[in-house]
Design a protein around this nucleic acid. Structure first.
Lengths: 400, 400
DNA sequence: TACTTTGTTTGTACAGTAGACAAAGTAAGT
DNA sequence: ACTTACTTTGTCTACTGTACAAACAAAGTA
């Protein structure tokens, strides 16, 4: 019979450890892996042979000697398979093919106005199909599809509620599963954004970080101990509905004074409409309905004082909420992503000032605030990384 | 030479798995352990033999047959060793000896008024010494000492800052280490309280919970995925300084409108002093300086309307902050502990109402709010459990 | 008498290891 | 240039320790 559980498990742990070491430190020799992992040279050699046989690792040739025989250098074979990551936005679909190392191979962006479930899912399917066609051949082919959605997603991949899309109870995972017959992962947009920055962006060397997605609303992806924290039902990170003022503006959630009524893109535009914006290029009367983040950025660049002050105020309110998160989580890094990061130039100072004056000094010492390194790609890249991680952990569980 | 790492590791994992199964399901037979863990009967037998040899497990006699040979029932030997847990409060020291199962064996409480570092640490040492003397003999003796402190503690066991004690930079772990030559663990009072409720109290069956310690201030111990989350520097859970109103009362931390300026014991007393308290037993004029939680509870019990309303208001503000935590963490359980839990009768309704009207409905579905099951013992029991857990995980790491 | 359940004994499979070793290099002395 | 000593890399072989399956003994039920 087969050997059960733990003896296999041990091998899988070590094999995965070797692969991980190669993934993160290539090019690297067998001897170096042995030193880094603490595994015996013999063990490393045998595991590497298996990894080469299964196309995850390739030998690239001899490296530099350090006083003895030249080492055979090993590479992680990023192109052993490809993943698809999708950022399903409120008025766009951004989809990409990445290799197993997260490098973007193909990208496709579609604008949308009709948010009807069927229309959107049809476009989504078409978009993914077209990317799959363009993906190069590889030993493992497309290993999975990840999708980030602006709403609450349960662990079955059902979109329970996505207010900005007007969706409720959409079984997105099931729909895609039937269409593509591939492993599908659906998650909240802030969660995948956090993963993207953690795996490929600003959070690579950090174990505890919060990715703050500030777009129409505010959401957070929470990385603790190197893993995404999802909460008991998968709904963690709804920081946008943190109460910051009991008697503040009414929020869509029914409560008052939620963070996103002060600091989101929605709030920004709402507040901007109340201003008397004067600019030679924009007629106030006709423009008041057309105000959006881009026009405000444009005005700020031209030195429009009220708009600059408005951004500063937004920054201040962002700082207040971030302070709360910092005091509660004591994270190493806050990454500000999504559309507001386009305004980083106008909000950074007031965020920093608010943090310095409000947060607890001990919590500030090891903490940094940065802006998404992958820009608007964080979510799509993170969605792909979910597919990649599932592929590798399935490998870990099943043997390979 | 010795076998390195993984082969030993495998055994330790299984041995610990068997021990854990016995700890949580005793009395249990070898056969049942085999079924529960998936380990082979042979493996279980051999590991159990070793556990019996090292006094962690004992055979209690034959159990009921279920149609065949009678099983030999195994017990976890709680009395193989003892731990000491200390709750270092603002005006008291509560210390206890527990066995390895967390059962309280001896308890000692001292009141204090002088909070000077030397005075307190001397009393602390004396208190621990006297408990050690009274601890029964056992194979492993005292396996460690855990202490919960109302302040920020770093990973070296230094108390960086404890405002309510007036302490800064006290190397408490080092001091106790030198005195007792035993494994010492120092942690924040809310963290140990959370562990106490998680291991022995209301949170036993829960993986994601928040223990809210509402005393003079407000702190939180955060249990995620069955483990305490400490943050990058060990300062997580400073929820008391979450801003709930930009222009609220000034807080000791320098900021304004922190949660604990609205809902802590300190806030409660401050607000009570502003009331015109009328009661036949208490002369307002002379009592105004003597108002404390006990007098307020007394008044509430007698039906004093202003005090009852005051508790309701405190409950409301607790609800606001809890809502924020629920939206962010999506926990399964909130445990309200420390002194405010004495007032649960007067605050529970308004907490619940606020949560129902403010929190997101999806987050509410699987969530419960309860009061500390161990009462004022949560922290001391949790401190002991840190020592116990360290003892067992050291065993796991070293072989036994 | 037939079957079940518990727990031990016996022999085997397999992962990782140490140590020896071959291959291929460096560095220094002559 | 050649020799000698040493280093580094990676493989081969023999061995150890762990978990396992199968057979078995013991002790029960129906």
């Amino acid at each position: 019979m087969k050997i059960t559980g733990d003896l296999q498990l041990m091998k899988k742990i070590n094999k995965y450890l070797v692969l991980d070491t190669i993934r993160h430190h290539y090019p690297i020799s067998r001897a170096d892996i042995s030193v880094k992992t603490g595994l015996n040279k013999t063990t490393v050699s045998s595991l590497v042979t298996e990894l080469i046989d299964s196309h995850f690792v390739t030998e690239i040739g001899l490296g530099e000697s350090s006083g003895g025989r030249k080492p055979m250098m090993l590479l992680f074979n990023q192109r052993a398979g490809y993943a698809i990551g999708v950022d399903l936005g409120v008025n766009y679909i951004l989809a990409m093919v990445t290799d197993l190392g997260g490098a973007v191979v193909k990208e496709k962006k579609i604008e949308m106005t009709d948010l009807n479930v069927e229309t959107v899912t049809e476009k989504l399917k078409k978009c993914i199909h077209s990317l799959i066609k363009k993906t190069p051949a590889s030993p493992y082919g497309i290993i999975g599809i990840g999708v980030g959605v602006p709403g609450l997603v349960d662990d079955q991949g059902n979109v329970l509620s996505a207010p900005n899309l007007g969706w409720t109870d959409v079984p997105l995972q099931e729909m895609l599963q039937q269409e593509f017959n591939l492993p599908i992962a659906i998650d909240n947009e802030a969660n995948v954004g956090a993963l993207g920055e953690k795996e490929f962006g600003a959070g690579r060397s950090v174990s505890n970080m919060i990715y703050l997605s500030v777009g129409i609303g505010i959401g957070a992806g929470i990385i603790l101990n190197d893993a995404l924290y999802r909460g008991v039902s998968g709904f963690s990170g709804e920081v946008g509905h943190m109460t910051l003022a009991q008697d503040g503006p009414l929020c869509g959630c029914g409560s008052r004074g939620c963070w996103e009524t002060f600091a989101s893109e929605k709030a920004l535009i709402h507040q901007a409409k109340a201003l008397q914006l004067v600019d030679e290029k924009i007629q106030v009367a006709e423009a008041i309905d057309k105000i959006n983040l881009n026009t405000l950025l444009h005005l700020a660049k031209r030195g429009n004082r009220p708009v600059i002050d408005l951004f500063a105020s937004t920054g201040h309110w962002l700082g207040v909420g971030i302070t709360n998160l910092v005091n509660v989580f004591n994270p190493e890094l806050i990454v500000i992503g999504n559309r507001i990061s386009l305004a980083s130039e106008w909000i950074a100072d007031s965020i920093r000032e608010t943090l310095n004056s409000h947060s607890l000094s001990f919590h500030r010492q090891k903490m940094n605030v940065v802006y998404a390194q992958l820009g608007m790609n964080s979510s799509a890249a993170g969605a792909a990384s979910i597919a990649i991680n599932r592929f590798f952990s399935a490998m870990k569980a099943l043997g390979d």
